[in-house]
């Protein structure tokens, strides 16, 4: 056992938790805003996937990770635009449109990958990190948590920022009203359509950024279908978060930690069926649902298109 409890192994596990959790955090924070405003964005998986493709393409062709992140956000936005047009402006079924967008993104990115990368499979070089002074010197935890890519710190900073936005700003109030009582928001002279559109676009950008992080920092390459359902897990985290960004952060970290724990148990040679071990992250989310999901209050007008004067 001692042979495994080494600093490099424990560091790799903790760093892996963060790497697995961060795309979920970014996409989950985006989805949370969309849900708050009354739009269930089932297309999140597709937005992440297109963001992953665009992010990788941008980073690989320019040599800049930041440009890759920007391209990833634009990719997510590109898929959020039809979501906004079809669901917010035209009032079509959000679930049907979301599934269609995800399937389209899967097909499109697989095709683009086939044309561009299938003979060469380009990969990005090792990513530079930004060690935080003092914190990064803490044994094990320091390297694992405080010697990461700057986007990790920015993503975590976004959590209190969004919490403030929802609690203390007019925009936060408008978003809440767009999801709970859109007619009241309309009566107050604020456009429900504009508020929901903004939320959907923000979701697309955040999901795209999450996908870009997954492809550039997480994997260092792009392969078709590489999001492997991360978008759907992010939707669950956003729902569990009940409008609180901190809960999305905790859920994403818990999921990442459980994923790392499954690796640790297997590497340690634990002789239990792998299927059981692999269930751990999903079981953790289900437990969360069991204890906290019951109290999850989803916006009253979630998935309902808004049409002025309609009851």
């Amino acid at each position: 056992m001692e042979s495994l409890l080494t600093t490099p192994f424990l560091t790799a596990l903790l760093a892996g938790s963060l790497a697995a959790g961060l795309p979920l955090l970014l996409a989950g924070l985006g989805e949370q805003m969309s849900e708050k405003a009354g739009v269930l964005n089932i297309g999140l998986e597709g937005m992440m996937l297109l963001g992953a493709y665009c992010g990788f393409l941008g980073a690989w062709s320019s040599g800049s990770l930041w440009l890759g992140f920007l391209c990833g956000m634009l990719g997510g936005l590109a898929l959020a635009l039809p979501m906004m047009l079809l669901c917010v402006w035209l009032g079509l079924n959000q679930i049907v449109v979301g599934i269609a967008l995800t399937l389209s993104a899967e097909g499109l990115t697989a095709l683009l990958h086939h044309v561009q990368f299938s003979q060469s499979y380009p990969r990005l070089p090792r990513v530079d990190t930004l060690p935080l002074p003092l914190l990064s010197e803490i044994p094990v935890l320091g390297t694992a948590l405080f010697d990461r890519h700057p986007l990790v710190y920015l993503a975590i900073l976004a959590v209190p920022l969004l919490a403030w936005l929802y609690r203390s700003s007019l925009l936060g109030l408008n978003l809440q009203a767009a999801g709970d009582r859109p007619a009241a928001l309309d009566a107050a002279g604020i456009s429900v359509i504009a508020t929901r559109s903004l939320a959907v676009l923000f979701t697309g950008a955040m999901a795209g950024l999450g996908g870009a992080y997954l492809a550039t920092v997480g994997a260092g390459l792009f392969v078709p279908f590489m999001t492997s359902g991360a978008g759907f897990i992010a939707i669950v985290l956003a729902m569990l978060g009940r409008g609180r960004p901190l809960w999305v952060l905790l859920g994403a970290l818990l999921f990442g930690l459980c994923l790392s724990l499954t690796t640790a148990l297997q590497v340690a040679g634990l002789r239990v069926p792998t299927d059981l071990v692999q269930m751990l992250p999903f079981a953790a989310v289900m437990l969360l649902l069991l204890f906290f999901g019951r109290r999850a209050a989803l916006p009253a007008a979630l998935t309902r298109p808004y049409r002025r004067g309609e009851r």
Binding site: F9, A12, V267, D275
Partner: peptide, 20 residues
């Protein structure tokens, strides 16, 4: 579970195995 396209997961797990 059936992570045939999970390149990021593969990298994360391999990082840990190398660290072991």
């Amino acid at each position: 579970p059936a992570a045939y396209a999970d390149a990021a997961g593969a990298r994360r797990v391999t990082d840990a195995v190398i660290a072991a």
